[in-house]
Design a protein around this nucleic acid. Structure first.
Lengths: 178, 178
DNA sequence: TCTACGTATGCACAGAGTTGCATATCCCGA
DNA sequence: TCGGGATATGCAACTCTGTGCATACGTAGA
């Protein structure tokens, strides 16, 4: 739905290649949006066709040629229009909840094992996010430039979400033990 | 990915029609999975073809005929196998985060407006979940039958998540005001 | 020397989700 | 009486997302 707009946002901040955009997604947008390089390249081609971005092919030595994409005026307008629309609700899909829902069919022991595995995953995520915060966002928020504050806040949502998840897991483990 | 398994879970708990499954999704699984009736009917047809569910057509007076689906032994096995696989990570996609990411391109005023609208949405969700908890899960957890505990825990995740979101929004509004 | 990884792009297919439309009946309120 | 909502199912077209495969070169380490 909004991969298009995420790409416009990145390309709007600075000219980028598909490869760079994919990496940026993994590093900085990974906890609220995921996309493979395939999706990115395909979407870039579509956006270019629609005239929202344009690209220049750049030859490199020792590496394959690359296409550097830039946002167009039309792209900027499209992005701003989308920005001002009422926010779409975030989409969640959590297969673990299906397992809770259907624990009766399989057994509570297996559910406990599932919960333990999921906890490892979420704990690792939280550790990663907190490491990023400690490394790149150690200074007080008010001293950050505005663009950095915004990125920091998206990271804060990731941290808040994972902490909340873990506290829910504590509660659930207590209930499952009883 | 797992719509299939969610349907198997519902049909495994008790025989249901596509219509009932869709409603159950809205009511009880809505905060971790969403599906339209189209998706449900199509998936049921696929599952029936694969022999994981079977159905009986039931005539009704005043209402259209309905198809009551039941899980098969094969369906039960497929579900149990899936259940024991390592849990898939939940998928999130939050367009609001894109707007934070790209606030520089449009303006901080518009972002504030977006955040306010999103807050309304999340506050309303939380109110709904808390109302459900008060109405249907008022008794102490240990006195609930096990199936009910499990459903209650999925609801608790919804509540925990929305509270966490709102506390993040408080923090973000402070930063945006500064 | 061989393997793996990083850089860089892309096609083809499969699977999942959305939107619009169509059908049919009953009941309730305006 | 007329419209809208609940019950109940489904097709068709479309978009969006994900997986597997393919290409091509350089560098670093076993």
């Amino acid at each position: 739905m909004s991969l298009k707009h995420l790409i416009l946002a990145v390309v709007g901040a600075r000219p980028s290649t598909g490869y760079e955009i994919t990496k940026e997604f993994d590093e900085v947008a990974g906890f609220y949006w995921r996309a493979t390089h395939q999706q990115v390249y395909r979407e870039l081609a579509t956006l270019a066709e629609a005239g929202l971005v344009r690209f220049k092919e750049v030859a490199q030595q020792g590496k394959p040629d690359k296409k550097v994409y830039t946002i167009t005026a039309k792209g900027r307008r499209a992005f701003a229009d989308w920005f001002r629309e009422p926010p779409e609700a975030p989409r969640h899909a959590d297969p673990l909840m299906i397992k809770f829902f259907a624990a009766e069919l399989v057994g509570i022991e297996d559910l406990r094992a599932q919960l333990a595995l999921a906890r490892e995953h979420h704990a690792a995520l939280l550790a990663t996010y907190e490491a990023i915060a400690a490394q790149h966002y150690a200074e007080p928020v008010d001293t950050m430039p505005r663009w950095k504050k915004m990125i920091y806040l998206t990271l804060r949502l990731g941290i808040t979400r994972e902490r909340a998840w873990l506290s829910w897991a504590d509660e659930s483990e207590r209930v499952l033990r009883a």
